[in-house]
Design a protein around this nucleic acid. Structure first.
Lengths: 248, 248
DNA sequence: TCACATTTGTCCGTATGTATC
DNA sequence: AGATACATACGGACAAATGTG
């Protein structure tokens, strides 16, 4: 595959690098369904032998497959490459990178969140399943538990919004929120977090959740807007301007 | 970095692989803005020397950076790693993979688009700038030009929605749409495209645009919904169910 | 607890392909 | 066309991690 096979007919074709071909080959097997999550691949050395390439080439191919979310590498005895499906995580980090690179402002982030989460809530009003209700209420309980121990419920409060998106059963929303929330958290972590602000957030979450469960549409959306605008205070997010009018 | 530095204090911490650390290091420089697109990095060997790691390690790090859209490798004399920004392509292929693996359906994609584009339009009603109006109208003109030559206006019709998002001045929307639209295009290209369908799309775009320019909110959103549902026909997107009710 | 086998992680040396001057 | 500088790919070696007896 290195010095051999100079194929005169297609000399003009951009010759893909060997590791890319190896990666594409395995990726196609996964996309085709021949390799399903849980499947165990032979060790690097064996794959290299079978494909007639060097071990380094196989390793670089696996770097691509790992980052794409198709493969996980386990070290040690009984280890090796395992087919997984973490493409949605890949998608989240890619979006995270894209948003970070564009240097979006907190205001843009808040506006985007508002649009997405309003969309999420509108769907939840029609089809919020009991299991989701349970998960969301558990989140509130855990948050209150932390507060009772005088600890801020930072992670729980982030997780609440991701759980909300998950309940919509739309992976695009889930991925978007999973990409956006860490950036929001990064912004928010720069100002002092008191227990009382953390408590206010949990209270707001609970109000939103109960309004959604009861199907009170206007109230749930109003609470959501108030909540996000409250968070935006001090970050240049206008709190007075009506950001989105519900009725024209 | 290999046999040295056994750091007894934090022995339990999951030690990241060296190539991951190298990748994360360079990535952070890009995200921080220290390295901007166009910047040329030293050759592999030099980087390896400077960081005190092997060349293969640097190579594997660059595989990650390449796939993430931060770096491009140029071969030959005067080549080497160059900082680029193709993160959005990465994002699109990741989304494409997710769709192919059926982790995201066309219906989810359409619903997400609807939510985002409705949010975009609501903002445009308040602050659509003349330059954006010009750009969008030019898009329509170009599309009609192609149709007049009996050519489908495929690219223009995709571009319309991205221009719409750009006009919102919210990078999160732009990034999202630029990730979604290539996938939509891929779906739609699988069914036969006639000139008349292409013309219908341009007509719909023009109607939406003029409604937005005139500030006719209900009409612009209604037209958008109709347009997207029309596109979704034959892909499992329900066209009768009210996907989002505007008033409760 | 202690070897031991397996597999990835990392390094080095070398040769070849490739683009530029 | 030849020289140069770089990535690409190979092979071999050892370290580190991980599971097993």
């Amino acid at each position: 595959m290195k010095q051999a096979d100079s194929w005169p007919l297609f000399e003009t074709m951009k010759r893909k690098r060997t590791f890319e071909e190896v990666s594409a080959h395995i990726k196609s097997l996964v996309l085709k369904g021949s390799l399903k999550p849980g499947a165990k691949l032979p060790p690097e050395a064996e794959i290299a032998r079978q494909l007639g390439v060097g071990r380094q080439t196989v390793r670089e191919a696996f770097r691509l497959l790992e980052l794409s979310g198709f493969v996980r590498i386990k070290r040690g005895l009984g280890g090796g490459p395992i087919i997984v499906d973490t493409v949605l995580d890949t998608l989240s980090t890619a979006l995270h990178d894209a948003v970070t690179l564009q240097r979006v402002s907190f205001e843009e982030l808040t506006n985007a969140r508002l649009v997405v989460e309003k969309g999420v809530i509108e769907r939840l009003l029609q089809k919020l399943e009991p299991s989701d209700t349970t998960r969301l209420r558990e989140n509130i309980v855990q948050a209150r538990g932390k507060l009772a121990m005088n600890l801020p419920a930072f992670e729980e409060n982030i997780q609440f919004h991701i759980l909300l998106a998950s309940a919509s059963r739309n992976q695009v929303f889930v991925v978007t929120m999973r990409a956006i929330m860490p950036i929001m958290a990064d912004f928010l972590s720069r100002r002092k977090q008191t227990l009382s602000t953390s408590k206010k957030v949990v209270d707001a979450h609970e109000e939103i959740l109960e309004a959604v469960i009861d199907g009170r549409k206007e109230e749930s959306i109003k609470k959501l807007e108030e909540h996000l605008l409250e968070l935006g205070k001090g970050f240049g997010v206008p709190s007075k301007r009506r950001m989105t009018k519900q009725q024209g």
